[in-house]
Design a protein around this nucleic acid. Structure first.
Lengths: 205, 205
DNA sequence: TTTTTGATAATTTTGTTTAAAAAGTCAGGA
DNA sequence: TCCTGACTTTTTAAACAAAATTATCAAAAA
């Protein structure tokens, strides 16, 4: 039977899900704690029983989202063959992740200058995990002899991820904010695929 | 002898020079038209005789700066040997340009969201000229047979410039504004050199 | 006629107040 | 322990005033 802790976790999950839907639909600042509570037919005060404040709630949703993304990426990567496939898989999965949750991230877009450290920790955790996963892919490919031996796979992956980031920024024509506009996402995606193609050939001996 | 138009041009140059020094030292918003006039021992009203307003003055200085940069880059590139040298030359020259004028660009840093179109035209002019110069370098190298034939050198250069941009953004750890902090410049420089190295090898057949 | 200026007008920035809305708290009920 | 309605505190925004700065102009100087 479900004990007390289980029940709490289930409720927390329900709150996270409802909050996620609201944030996704209206963005952070336009959704009120009252609305989230209303969607769950519970009182606003109860939200504060489970989460210390609004930003912590948002961060908890973000963390869950990130974990889901990394889990999915790990699964997909384990099914890829060579290094090229692995990078393309990362790019595709990441692309879908951003597209599907675009509105959710408006909090990050609007507060880029002063985001709580916890958000950056999540972003860095994603980056770190991606680096580990893709770093392993490089090592595997190097052992197979498909590419020349690399001293520091981590640095190479880091560099490629930076370069991919740049395709995003550059594609926006240097204008406006750092966060990509929806209409640019497809072009970003296309250019990234091209970059990977060249980059990988640069690693082959 | 100097005619009237010459005299005007000389005065305009002097104003541009004084304004450049002030902007470089104090940044855009902290320098007043009074201070620029003071540095030239002339009245503020005279500045408005030569330039329509403060932002136009700033833009004129920026344009001059950009022209000087592109002229220097062109000279330097004409002395380079292979493609790798050319890209490294571009990266070095650009790096110096940013470092030496860092404070001057605080107007751009602070107003990233809403810059006048003229500024963006200058930025795009720089990008366009860089693309032409480096595109020619690629074509030359392809004719020599150093690298495999490329259909569209422009697209390749564009992609590389985007990637280099990304090294900049990525190096800042995803944090804060789009404009690089001074303490990151050296690291950006180093990583860009590495990226070029790999990228060029990717183009070789 | 062109260049220059002091005085002045117009605009932008900065700071303050105030009211509404939303966040966050708490004593007490189930 | 979980939950709520009523309450307090904080944030947001709009409106306004004061100060600083940009921009103009009639008239003087070259």
């Amino acid at each position: 039977m479900g004990n007390v802790a289980d029940q709490q976790d289930i409720k927390r999950e329900k709150i996270l899900e409802a909050a996620y839907q609201q944030f996704l639909h209206y963005g952070y600042s336009k959704t009120t704690m009252n609305e989230i509570a209303g969607a769950l037919s519970m009182s606003k005060a109860l939200l504060y029983y489970y989460f210390p404040d609004k930003s912590q709630l948002y961060i908890a949703v973000t963390r869950k989202l990130a974990d889901d993304y990394l889990k999915l990426l790990d699964e997909k990567l384990s099914k890829t063959g060579d290094l090229k496939d692995a990078f393309v898989c990362q790019i595709d999965t990441h692309h879908d992740f951003i597209v599907n949750n675009y509105n959710f991230f408006d909090f990050i877009r609007l507060n880029e200058q002063s985001l709580p450290d916890t958000i950056w920790e999540i972003v860095e955790h994603i980056r770190q995990t991606e680096m580990t996963l893709l770093g392993n892919a490089i090592k595997t490919d190097a052992e197979k002899g498909n590419i020349s031996k690399v001293d520091n796979p981590g640095e190479i992956v880091d560099l490629l991820l930076d370069a991919l980031q740049g395709v995003r920024v550059g594609t926006m024509g240097y204008r406006k904010t750092t966060f990509p506009k929806k209409e640019h996402l497809e072009e970003i995606h296309r250019k990234r695929l091209l970059l990977v193609d060249i980059f990988i050939r640069g690693l082959k001996h």
